[in-house]
């Protein structure tokens, strides 16, 4: 039985492997970028309002800060209560050309001990959790040029 790969949120990312990108939107009038995507109204209060067009975000950025979750987060985060809790790192990444910070989980295997503010990371496809029918996909931040 093959399971379906389903994004945890529709329209936030696209592509596989090296082509994986986060997707935001850009206002055609003022060039403001939004992630998570705004599809109805531009939120720049000085903008008359333009069409919002889908735009891929930079694949690489620099760590603004990082932390981890040593305890099991509550629902709607999905975990298997039968399994021991495995902490994961969270990374806030500064994207230079978008001039914004985007949060994400670190790629599996990377802990806070592997991270530093200012370190370069890239966005990679990841799996949030799996059930019998579905593999729920997400984005991960992964330090560049680091093997673990």
């Amino acid at each position: 039985m093959s399971r379906t790969r389903t994004p945890v949120v529709d329209g936030w990312f696209t592509g596989d492997g090296d082509d994986f990108r986060l997707l935001g939107t850009r206002c055609s009038a003022c060039a403001a970028v939004f992630f998570p995507r705004e599809d109805v109204h531009c939120r720049n209060p000085g903008c008359p309002g333009g069409d919002l067009e889908e735009v891929p975000l930079s694949q690489r950025g620099y760590i603004w800060s990082y932390t981890d979750s040593r305890y099991r987060p509550p629902s709607p985060y999905v975990t298997d209560p039968e399994l021991p809790w495995e902490p994961y790192a969270l990374i806030a990444v500064e994207l230079e050309s978008e001039r914004m910070v985007v949060l994400g989980q670190a790629a599996p295997g990377f802990t806070v001990a592997d991270l530093a503010v200012g370190m370069e990371v890239e966005v990679v496809p990841g799996v949030l959790h799996e059930d019998t029918e579905t593999i729920w996909t997400t984005w991960h931040w992964r330090p560049t040029g680091v093997a673990i």
């Binding site: 932390t67 987060p73 509550p74 629902s75």
Partner: peptide, 14 residues
């Protein structure tokens, strides 16, 4: 919470 499991303390940690 759904996508990141980001509890309040994780923001404080950041």
């Amino acid at each position: 919470f759904r996508v990141l499991g980001a509890t309040n303390p994780t923001y404080f940690g950041l």
